[in-house]
Amino acid sequence: MFILAELLVFAVFFSVYAFTRASHVELFNSMQQTLDTNAALINTLALITSSYFVMRAVAAIRDNRADHSYRWLLAAMFMGLVFLVVKSGEYSHHFEHGINLRTNLFYMFYLSLTFFHFMHVIMGMVILGAVAFKMKQGAYSAEEHTGVESGASYWHMVDIVWLVLFPLVYIMH
């Protein structure tokens, strides 16, 4: 239910962005050109890779290989960290140029949407960290690994949201 609520919020956010853009096409198109699509590419590849690693972690624990699952989780968290570092670099660049929520309508949406997602990545990292910790303690097995499946579902949700956010905010114009 928690994931469902999160997905609904992002769906509303994306729709409002798209309809607001329809009334301010020139502003949104010109401001979009100021974004770093290379950083967005790296972040998209990082999240897709982390989702693959999380899938491998779930597959490993279903085979009762907790040590493998633990390592896949750590690898997924590393890719999540790559996302956070690259995204922080983007924010730093914007703030150095005096860009903030009040700069214009586009940046209000861009900063709100991406920061909201950024917070979800942090939350996902905390969840994966907790799952990895419990994995190391021997809490999961092929028979009982509900926590691993739930954590993986949350992380995939974070990934799917970014897969729509990336083209919508950075590419489509």
Binding site: S51, Y52, V54, H156, I160, P167
Partner: peptide
Amino acid sequence: VLGFALFKGFLIGDYYMG
């Protein structure tokens, strides 16, 4: 581009979320 994104989402759901 939007179609690519939606298709990618379906793939994540079907294959990674099982």
